[in-house]
Amino acid sequence: MRETRIIIEPGRTERNYWQDLWRYRELFYILSWRDIKVRYKQTVIGAVWGILRPLLTMIVFTVVFSRIAQLPSEGAAPYAILVFAAMLPWQFFANALTESSNSLIGNANLITKVYFPRLIIPASSVITSFVDFAISFALLFVLMAWYGYAPSWNMVFLPGFIVLAFFTAFGVGLYLTALNVKYRDFRYIIPFIVQFGLYISPVGFSSNVVPDHWRWLYNLNPMVGVIDGFRWCILGESALNRQSVLTAVIISVLFTWIGIRYFRKMEKGFADVI
């Protein structure tokens, strides 16, 4: 018989948290697998939807911002690619927020019946959104081939920015998840945040159109840095805006920290509240 010893006392879960998280990694894997499987099983157009949504938004944005508003692209990059390079991290961020904030309530039956570190649930829904991201990423290459536009060598730095996008989404998502359990009407606010964010982030336009003296304020939105980074890697037409990327790194680390802390503070009560 394996010698296992578990002590339960007030505040104990708190101390063994990271150890437990590691012990339950298999569950984390299985739950992500379930979410992905269900997502692509439920609808025939599951995968198609993952492609269609960014594609249609990209077309609309290109028409509105480039043709109607006459905003400039970056260098020689086709406007469609400029938009799509930003659409990728934005869609990921938006999906991750929406999915993770609903994840705990959607899994209430699990939370009230089994023990595991609750962090696994929102984390696995961020992973699910990441799969959508990977699918639409393939579309980027199709788009580039269509326009005959070669990617820049900066592409090698892209994984770094993907990680940055991931942690931004994870941190903010976690915070909203905990809020959503505490205040059950918070879910009405989340679609608004997502929609609002789409317009205040430089998705449909280049962040270069923002006047320089307002840039510092604009950069406080961590998605500005993420999108700047993605564009720099994919298009490589203008120099990297170090300031916005640096702000994004700081803010995403901060958010991840706050998100985890707040989530863990709330976590103990989830089973009693949900």
């Binding site: 010698e3 010893r5 007030p10 023990y115 103990k268």
Partner: peptide
């Protein structure tokens, strides 16, 4: 371990 106790201690071997 679904919910934490407020006082006391449990030892599970």
């Amino acid at each position: 371990r679904i919910t934490e106790p407020s006082t006391g201690r449990v030892e599970l071997n």
